[in-house]
Design a protein around this nucleic acid. Sequence first.
DNA 1: GTGTGTGAAAAATTTCACAGCT
DNA 2: AGCTGTGAAATTTTTCACACAC
Lengths: 224, 224
Amino acid sequence: MSTEAASRRGVPDATVARLPGYLRALTAFVDRGITSVSSEELATAAGVSPAKLRKDLSHLGSYGVRGVGYDVARLAEEITDVLGLARDWPVAIVGMGNLGRALAAYRGFATRGFKVVAVLDHDARLVGLRTAGHTVQPMSALPRLVADEGLAIGVIATPPGSAQLVADQLVAAGVRSILNFAPQVLSVPPGVDVRKVDLATELQILAFLAQQRDLETGAEAEVS
Amino acid sequence: MSTEAASRRGVPDATVARLPGYLRALTAFVDRGITSVSSEELATAAGVSPAKLRKDLSHLGSYGVRGVGYDVARLAEEITDVLGLARDWPVAIVGMGNLGRALAAYRGFATRGFKVVAVLDHDARLVGLRTAGHTVQPMSALPRLVADEGLAIGVIATPPGSAQLVADQLVAAGVRSILNFAPQVLSVPPGVDVRKVDLATELQILAFLAQQRDLETGAEAEVS
DNA sequence: GTGTGTGAAAAATTTCACAGCT
DNA sequence: AGCTGTGAAATTTTTCACACAC
């Protein structure tokens, strides 16, 4: 229980969203044998401004030393604590299409605080097959996974048409954190967190920015 | 050139980030044969508040009718225009690992304004293989793809160690929009847009929220 | 009557700039 | 002397509430 400041309410959402990036940068410093960094170095590595970094870290408490910088290992541990990554979170991936299989094979889970405890699919023809070290299980396995494995996070990698049903089944089984890769708005009861990853949305934002660049290049009537 | 208001500078970033969601919801309404929606209906379908939706749309101009609502087809067309999706954007996917192959096989591109014109890999042993209807090309093909196919957007699906090199090669070839799936901060010259999709970050944010829920449930000392 | 469009208020986030600790 | 931590200012985003067009 060394997390006094960390357990306080009131870390802004925008800050929380950046903490994983800081943690990744810190881990890279650890790997390179660097034990101390300034806010400027860490900010550069994480792709943010130094002022933003310092403000973000100030919400966790004071873990730097004025005139010196931050102890890499200590700050990494603190952020790990704040994010709740001191323990591993059991994850299940639902939907064994192309994306689901790619996610199941992804190596990055283990090193970052997550453990894939099961892969599932609604389609009976896929149940029993093996992918990336896992045997595909039916949706009916969910309650047992929650009870026995402590399953806490569900990843939805199904076609959009099945996403809501899968979300309902996850929630019914007791899962309260969902990462949704399907391009579909999910409705879930209060107390359940959903985050969305959407390829098409990101591409469309890039298209908007690209078009804006083109328009600006084409039209030279600007107030300096 | 019917986009007067649309071509104006000053659509807020937060609004741009939500436009793809509105477009998707509108497309779903079109498919269901619905020709008119209120801000409340559209907001619900897109997962935002009605006030936010109306404010967002007000930045594009007035495309609703007071007392009635929005013409689904007209609004969809307007957002399509604003986002620059009236034409197809040529996309290349770099990195034919699990994720790259899954992305190459993804059906959602075509229907949303994008066209995969090539898949590439740095590894000579993969070049020439066929995946999802494409022949894997070497990185040296980039300049020709930009010149001949109008390649505008690069998707990086490589391991983190190769991501910066790939980004450099994309930029050198003239690509100015990059979608990065590798957990690696990219440094690019001004005028190049990078957006990041990061599985681990999203999971870590979910972990934070889940832990916070657990802490709040455990500790009953609250000011109502 | 109904539901949009929008000023104004509120809230959240970012940036600034410097006091204060080492 | 150097770099963090932080109030205060600036900016962005969200929410409110109602005038106004149909």
